[in-house]
């Protein structure tokens, strides 16, 4: 009996640390995961409107972060700089659709995908020429003093990331449910031909989709920049991660992209903490392969086999 007590205390203390550790992985994973989710959502929206995987999605993220840094540098206050950067990204997205995707609208989907790859190289090159090759740090929106929670720590910026992501998801849900354009986007995603017959201008839907995706990407790039830093080539990695998030959730599902993104972030943090920091980047891909083998429609996707 007497020997049991201290042992109990030790295990309790130990599990306390273990819980704090778990919580820390969860916080870190969710923060990064939320940005993956926003980027993934951008992929899903364009994919739904056209079956195009927009490889320039990551560049919207880059434009968001880098343009904010640049606008602050020329003396604008942070909120104005953020609005300016988002506007720049949206204009870029719309221009990309109008000037590069629309003229080739009759081309094969693969061709359109390669056009977006060309666009991403072009935009990255332009950013490198205009803004240089250095990394930049964006100031945190409300300080850097960590918040302590259950033995784990959280940056105020993480709350911004999670809060803004949540707000955007709610706003998008409202947009798709209650606005005419939102409903038209959903209809096009569901069946483009039928939507066309119903008088929906599917080309315009794609135009709007690019703007919307650019907005999501830019916001992701801005809110995460104080944590992760930003540079002209930051879009390569975040773009790829966003794509993986979208695939993880079943390409083309908005809910899937959000869950996929959060999941991806959490998996990475957990894998780094519990399995192997060397192989943490491989874990999501192993999961993707397993899903494709055993659950081919993804976690939230539509049926795997298409109708004739």
């Amino acid at each position: 009996m007497g020997a049991g007590r201290p042992l109990l205390v030790i295990t309790a203390g130990c599990s306390g640390i273990m819980f704090a550790e778990f919580l820390q992985y969860l916080f870190s994973g969710m923060t990064i995961g939320a940005t993956y989710a926003l980027v993934g959502l951008g992929f899903a929206i364009i994919y739904n409107a056209s079956h195009v995987i927009n490889f320039a999605q990551g560049e919207f993220v880059m434009i968001g972060g880098m343009a904010t840094v640049f606008l602050i540098h020329i003396g604008l206050p942070l909120p104005v700089a953020i609005l300016g950067a988002v506007a720049l990204a949206v204009v870029t997205g719309l221009a990309l659709e109008k000037l590069a995707v629309e003229p080739a609208r009759n081309a094969d989907v693969v061709t359109l995908i390669i056009i977006t790859i060309g666009a991403s190289i072009f935009l990255r090159g332009l950013a490198q020429v205009l803004w240089g090759k250095e990394f930049f740090a964006l100031p945190a929106f409300s300080g850097n003093d960590p918040i302590h929670l259950g033995g784990a720590t959280l940056l105020p910026q993480s709350l911004w990331v999670l809060g803004i992501t949540l707000a955007i998801v709610v706003a998008l849900a409202w947009f798709f449910k209650y606005t005419l354009i939102g409903k038209a986007i959903l209809a096009t995603a569901c069946n483009a031909d039928a939507a066309k017959m119903m008088g929906i201008n599917t080309q315009f839907i794609l135009f709007i989709s690019f703007g919307l995706s650019a907005l999501l990407g830019a916001v992701a790039g801005i809110i995460v920049a104080p944590i992760t830093l930003t540079s002209y080539d930051v879009g390569i990695m975040l773009g790829l991660k966003g794509f993986v998030a979208a695939v993880l959730g079943g390409l083309g599902s908005a809910v899937g992209a959000i869950v996929g993104g959060l999941l991806l972030g959490i998996i990475e943090a957990m894998a780094a903490g519990y399995i192997s920091s060397d192989y943490k980047d491989a874990v999501p891909f192993v999961i993707i392969l397993l899903i494709l083998f055993f659950l081919p429609s993804g976690l939230f996707g539509a049926r795997g086999t298409e109708r004739v």
């Binding site: 550790e21 820390q24 992985y25 870190s28 740090a137 784990a152 830093l229 957990m270 943490k280």
Partner: peptide
């Protein structure tokens, strides 16, 4: 873009007296 997982592990490892980071670019800053 985030190394808190690895650092949490280091933080909770008994007896570590110092940490040495070997990398270049933005990673070490993060």
């Amino acid at each position: 873009t985030d190394m808190t997982a690895q650092l949490t592990k280091i933080k909770n490892t008994e007896g570590v007296q110092a940490v040495f980071v070997f990398g270049f670019g933005q990673g070490p800053a993060i």
